[in-house]
Design a protein around this nucleic acid. Sequence first.
DNA 1: CTAATAAGTCATCACCTGTTGACTTGTGCT
DNA 2: AGCACAAGTCAACAGGTGATGACTTATTAG
Lengths: 190, 190
Amino acid sequence: MKSSQPVRRRDAASTRNAILCAARNLFARDSYENVGIREIASLSGADAALVSRYFGSKEELFSEMLGHGDRGADIIGTAPEGLPGRVADIMTDPEDEGKSIEDILIILHSANSPVAGPLVQNSIVERFHGPFAEAIGGEHAMVRSQMFGAMLLGLSISQQISGDLADTPEMREKVKARIAEIIAKVISPL
Amino acid sequence: MKSSQPVRRRDAASTRNAILCAARNLFARDSYENVGIREIASLSGADAALVSRYFGSKEELFSEMLGHGDRGADIIGTAPEGLPGRVADIMTDPEDEGKSIEDILIILHSANSPVAGPLVQNSIVERFHGPFAEAIGGEHAMVRSQMFGAMLLGLSISQQISGDLADTPEMREKVKARIAEIIAKVISPL
DNA sequence: CTAATAAGTCATCACCTGTTGACTTGTGCT
DNA sequence: AGCACAAGTCAACAGGTGATGACTTATTAG
């Protein structure tokens, strides 16, 4: 058995997990450089020294965190026909505080970091472009996947910079329709 | 007169300018946090103390640098009809090492910085979305400008992450054509 | 030529970062 | 109960950052 008692105050596995989750939350809001180990430790309720101890270094923690997310499967799992509508929904959802696009935000914030950038880039190719290109199929699927990713990143960063594109419900519908059109064109056979 | 001698080794104005240019180069390659004052000073050939002295602080230097660029006028100055082609050209130019999209790279790298982010965002609205929305005209020009900006940023960051979209000349033509189509749709009346 | 002032340099400060080693405390086994 | 080891804590380190004030050197005006 893993645990004879349901509650343990000292549990390395769950502490590790708490640190990983805290890291994910923070790295979605700020860049690799701007998130400190002490900050991660504080949010997870652990000590800063434990972070270095469990993961070796900040870089290894970041790397492990990248492989810890399930999302993105949302988009990859959506059938190509439904994709434009799904993306348009996600991108115009006013409630979403970066929950369903957490992976995108992580990419956005650390893709250009000297140390975290390469890790992010590898993760994108392996965990997104690869599967997604296969999902949409057709000729030049990789290039089309890259352009699709460009759209996602662009819309997200624009949202971060200028806020939501639409303010009124009617406007939101118009924007949503347009995004869907564009996405459809982006992933259409080249 | 400003200068009786054409050559002065000690010239505050040109030193200031050199610092500004060095800062622009470096901030186009890395984020606000990752570019150090000593690095800027070194590239400009000046002393690190002069940077703080002339501009007060790193933040003020960054702010002044934002207003120091002429580019972006390239895109704003292009007539709406020629815009899709122009953007497609810029985005698929294999030679361009971020020269003509220097402003975009600066935005990309520091838009999310806690300290430089707000400055970048203001600059974008004032120096880009404002003029550009007026240039394309029509209904909801501001929203269309934002989506246009999203495309530019997305394509640029994707290029930074995955390298050039196309590797062969034929592929490049196809990609170019597709980008032009998409841009046309993005800025078309909503 | 010389004195005054601007321009540039140097050393140093206070702060923050990731990381480490030594220490303390809790937990499960016998 | 008592011991052993894992889990968590604390303080400190070395390195790097932006910023400052005192110093030196070049330039120009008188």
